[in-house]
Design a protein around this nucleic acid. Structure first.
Lengths: 247, 247
DNA sequence: CGCTTAGTTGACTCTTCTCAAAAGCAGTGG
DNA sequence: CCACTGCTTTTGAGAAGAGTCAACTAAGCG
């Protein structure tokens, strides 16, 4: 099994075979979630952590007016809720945005890793900090960029993140979201989201074919969106042999 | 010295005297920054970490159009940049928003704590996760709440955070920010920020006296802002000393 | 094929932005 | 003590980006 978590963490530092064995071995079992189901809900504190293996999920919060705001996307290789290893309970929910396959990891396994303070613990912390960096960048996007730039920025990010776990083909990737969901993410109405996507298409920066997002000109899109990939901290793995990365 | 970091971390779990000694002992020396100065800048990777002892600082990113977006506030007790213990370099800057006193902590001291995997390491991770939770809530605020609710929400948060480190008196606290800075945080123009604050005053939810923010009716303000303090995870310290829930 | 969900488009409204200028306040130096 | 200067706060007026309502089209599915 090619574990997307391993692929992801190796962006940060080379993992030993022992490390990889630990990561492989920690999943208790695998569970499937249908699109729309919650993987974990507000207030919960289960005794296991979810590792997304396939599909897209989203962290979200519901507002009293009934609308939902998505505050993060989870793609294969992302740990959904290490939080519960440390916090009292979930302060948000995570829902499957497409059908998802998820590895169930006992909390103990996570705690063991955190307690061993080795490479793996570092790698987990790194991924937590990257998640945080992404949140900061989103905050800037929503707070200070126009709808069009914001959308372009989002597409750049998702392309690079998909690439990092081998889920992009060249400059395109599968984005199993509805426009409503993207709107709930970028703080726009569905109508305006639609118009904004149309504009990006008109500019010939992206093309959309079903659920495939095809970036026509990544250079231009990045320039347009004022996108600097530094915040993703996707440096090449530690300078060692055979370090391959999807490109 | 009453260390605000200790006060903060004890919200999460009780610290042993040994833990406290470590926290006290880790500061190498203290440095002062004048309002407007950068404490750490984009791209840097120094060999020490900053602990804010006095004053307010802010994480920010600059945009090509020249405007600045503030993505987090640091108040006494907050570690500014544990990030550099794990990431290659800062992906944002931290600036002093008022005159600040800062403890300089060698990176080694942080790494030692992280490596020992005890109470303290857990407490640091907890505070990182809380920072992340705050970012998520801000994202919801900017993305989905009106200017007025967003502002009210922000005031609620800062009051509770100040309280947690003993910097509030009842329902008021010192907020050493200009309206422009708050605007740069909430994604509003300075003009609209001003009008929004005026409205909150007219509603008699808050009063502003110089740099003092006085919350007139916290209950109402929280209800108005749709503020749920859960995300701050300010639970009382763990029930008993030895009660380790880890692993 | 009809049903349901997602995407598209138009027309109108409203929140928030921009430009502009006045007023308040604090620090400085004569 | 006062005039001067620079920054912050306040207010007005018009413009623009984004939201809402509503209808229509396209696409997946049993």
């Amino acid at each position: 099994m090619d574990n997307p978590l391993i692929r992801k963490l190796e962006q940060f530092r080379r993992l030993s075979n022992a490390d990889k064995r630990v990561l492989h071995g920690m999943a208790d079992h695998v569970r499937d979630y249908a699109r729309g189901q919650d993987i974990i809900s507000l207030g919960e504190r289960p005794d296991h952590v979810h590792l997304l293996l396939d599909g897209w999920a989203g962290r979200y919060k519901l507002l009293p007016e009934g609308n939902r705001h998505i505050v993060a996307y989870l793609i294969p290789g992302d740990l959904c809720d290490v939080h519960i290893a440390l916090l009292d309970r979930m302060d948000h929910s995570i829902g499957a945005l497409s059908d998802c396959r998820v590895a169930i990891i006992p909390l103990n396994a996570i705690n063991d890793i955190l307690n061993e303070s080795g490479n793996l613990s570092r790698a987990l912390l790194w991924s937590m900090l990257v998640d945080e960096a992404i949140l900061r960048e989103w905050l800037v996007s929503i707070g200070a960029r126009s709808a069009e730039k914001r959308t372009a920025h989002f597409i750049c990010e998702m392309l690079l993140r998909c690439r990092a776990v081998g889920l992009a083909e060249g400059d395109s990737f599968r984005m199993p979201l509805t426009q409503q969901e993207v709107a709930d993410t970028l703080g726009l109405s569905a109508v305006h989201m639609n118009r904004t996507l149309k504009q990006l298409r008109r500019r010939e920066l992206v093309r959309i074919d079903g659920k495939s997002m095809i970036v026509e000109d990544l250079e231009c899109l990045m320039a347009f969106a004022d996108f600097d990939p530094l915040y993703l901290h996707q440096s090449q793995p530690a300078p060692a042999p055979g370090a391959a990365r999807a490109g």
